[in-house]
């Protein structure tokens, strides 16, 4: 990603000095471009197209065209049969369920990214130390990532059960030890205020290792001489962390934050399995809402419209983030 890939000076880029290179230049890049273009162009165009119609289950072309002409609320295209309308977009700001889902999703993104980054950074610093059985421990640290999110969510349901889980028993034991009258029962998945946090915890259990892994690879690339020099100058560990390690890792941190942020933006499987979006609408995510809108409710056009707005927002968000990071980054512009 741009933020991280400042080019080492010894790699020269060229447009290809020989005729062969000018051809190979295209050969190298084309397969990726073609695959991505072919696969994304149809869904994008299709979604864009139907987001301006009223295509949905139960609304047959004829009826809606008739409805459109009689209502006069949209232009009926004779050949198309479906009404062409902006209603899907106009409806969004009033769609309470959509707004709640959007708020929940933003919460997941921010809480998830902060927790995962802080923990991930700390663990990367730990793993960068020498200690007994470090290689085995590194793989253990990565294990959660290797579990399918569906299974992680089921495990979450088992471990965060408010009465039958070991965790619940731990809290009961603590209550007894403290001599509390009523045992502490944490409604991990059953209270609208706690459940979103639990979702974040499950996601963080799974993906903190990813952050750790990326940052660890960055840490290992920092040459020891830089630390040595700082130590000679009398810097303590905290100062080294603040003045050297952290700034050097900043571009990589930005990348990792962006990746995790955008991945969490798409969260669905964990939510569906752990809470089904409940209690109430406390944990419903945007992707889940869109998915339900399209397939359960058959409102394909509205689902497409939401996805499209989402796509635009994501791109804006990512671009702004990258621009800010590039400004802040010490290697900016190199």
């Amino acid at each position: 990603m741009e933020a991280t890939t400042s080019r080492p000076a010894h790699v020269e880029q060229s447009e290809g000095s020989t005729r062969e290179d000018r051809i190979m230049r295209r050969v190298f890049l084309s397969p990726a471009i073609i695959v991505l273009l072919l696969l994304s162009i149809f869904p994008l165009l299709w979604s864009l197209g139907i987001s301006f119609t009223n295509i949905q289950r139960g609304a047959t072309p004829d009826q809606s065209a008739v409805a459109a002409t009689t209502e006069g609320s949209g232009a009926a295209l004779p050949g198309l049969g479906f009404e062409v309308t902006l209603r899907n977009f106009a409806r969004m700001p009033q769609d309470q369920r959509l707004l709640t889902a959007a708020a929940n999703t933003l919460f997941y993104v921010f809480a998830g990214v902060i927790i995962q980054y802080v923990l991930g950074f700390g663990l990367a610093l730990v793993l960068n130390q020498e200690f007994f059985a470090r290689n085995v421990v590194r793989v253990i640290f990565l294990m959660p990532m290797m579990m399918t999110p569906v299974a992680a969510a089921y495990s979450g349901r088992m471990l965060f059960d408010s009465t039958l889980s070991p965790l619940a028993q731990l809290f009961r034991t603590i209550s007894t030890v403290l001599g509390l009258e009523r045992p502490i029962v944490v409604p991990w998945l059953t209270s609208g205020t706690v459940a979103p946090w639990t979702i974040v915890l499950i996601d963080s259990w799974q993906w903190t290792p990813f952050v750790t892994l990326i940052l660890l690879s960055g840490l290992q690339a920092i040459p020891d001489e830089i630390y040595e020099a700082a130590r000679v100058d009398g810097a303590n560990a905290l100062q080294i962390l603040r003045k050297i390690t952290f700034p050097l890792l900043l571009p990589l941190s930005a990348t990792v934050i962006l990746i995790r942020g955008l991945e969490i933006f798409k969260i669905i499987d964990v939510v569906v399995v752990a809470t089904g979006g409940g209690p109430g609408s406390a944990t419903e995510s945007l992707t889940m809402y869109i998915f339900k809108t399209a397939l359960t409710f058959g409102n394909y056009s509205y689902a497409a419209a939401i996805s499209f707005v989402l796509l635009v927002l994501v791109i804006i968000f990512a671009t702004v983030f990258l621009v800010i990071v590039r400004r802040l980054s010490p290697q900016a512009g190199s």
């Binding site: 289950r57 139960g58 369920r97 609208g192 979006g277 409940g278 209690p279 109430g280 609408s281 406390a282 339900k292 359960t296 409710f297 058959g298």
Partner: peptide
């Protein structure tokens, strides 16, 4: 009737919101 699943799913979500006290 036609749309049963949709009618009932709508009910499902709103009941859940009431149960949670939203």
């Amino acid at each position: 009737i036609r749309g049963s699943a949709e009618y009932l799913q709508t009910l499902d979500v709103e009941i859940a919101r009431a149960v949670e006290g939203e």
